[in-house]
Design a protein around this nucleic acid. Sequence first.
DNA 1: CTTGAAGCTATAGTTGCTAGAGACATTAGG
DNA 2: CCTAATGTCTCTAGCAACTATAGCTTCAAG
Lengths: 146, 146
Amino acid sequence: MLTIGKLGEAAGVKVPTIRYYEQIGLLPEAERSSGNQRLYGRKAMKRLAFIRHARDLGFTLEAIRDLLSLSDNPDQSCAAADAIARSQLVEVESRLARLTALKAELERMVVQCAGGKIADCRVIEVLGDHSLCATDHRHPETEATQ
Amino acid sequence: MLTIGKLGEAAGVKVPTIRYYEQIGLLPEAERSSGNQRLYGRKAMKRLAFIRHARDLGFTLEAIRDLLSLSDNPDQSCAAADAIARSQLVEVESRLARLTALKAELERMVVQCAGGKIADCRVIEVLGDHSLCATDHRHPETEATQ
DNA sequence: CTTGAAGCTATAGTTGCTAGAGACATTAGG
DNA sequence: CCTAATGTCTCTAGCAACTATAGCTTCAAG
């Protein structure tokens, strides 16, 4: 049995984050020692590693909640898990596209900055005038909402 | 002179966001009409467009605050603005690298999912075991913090 | 047996907004 | 000129996903 600190260390998750996951119901309430401290076994360790890994892959806690409940019922079809992963992939692809455009724009800004006075600074100038941009770089959320 | 709604429409920024920017001091307090409604001129419009554009490029509000104060003092050297833009570029590049790895991992997960039962689902399996991953895909923040 | 680290709870703060309530201002139509 | 609809006002609370703080208790090492 591990204390919360050991568990956090092992899984690469900070202690308050583990308590937070318990609070929002992603982790079940932990067993307690005689002195009221949380104790974790192998199962909790695996569940936390799952959560951590999914977070690393960019899944939201809501998506993870769904994936965990799927994982708890191994007899169901995996279509739902597949759908969640696919939608996450779409998400990532769109962010990737946007970031690529941003990178190009920032590079242009930085390269063109001659190191003179602010009055002639390309960085400030470009930020003040979108028409100086070569690429489209809007937030997808701005359109996607609804 | 524009009302807050017209300004928001023109700049592509929602009305409460404009009030929020004023509240946190990114925009100066607006003039008011006789009926206490905010009125904006050309200068405010430009400033808001600057903010909006910088946000689109992923700058934080703190960075934008710095950029704006630079832009307000055109006689200074533009080294600071350049540094902010460069650090933003570094940020974007690192997110880009990480997202690229994520994309590869998600693609692997999704492709390998045969569409059977959860018990055999690659998505769930991979999430449960990082060693099944081909690439490194951690949050940079986790390391970068301090 | 004492001390310092690690644990506990509870609350508040972070970033960048967004949503709601309830009251006042403005504008278009009849 | 009155009314209805829309716009604006302030204020507060909420979102994700934690992180930090305060003030306490418990545990492990020397």
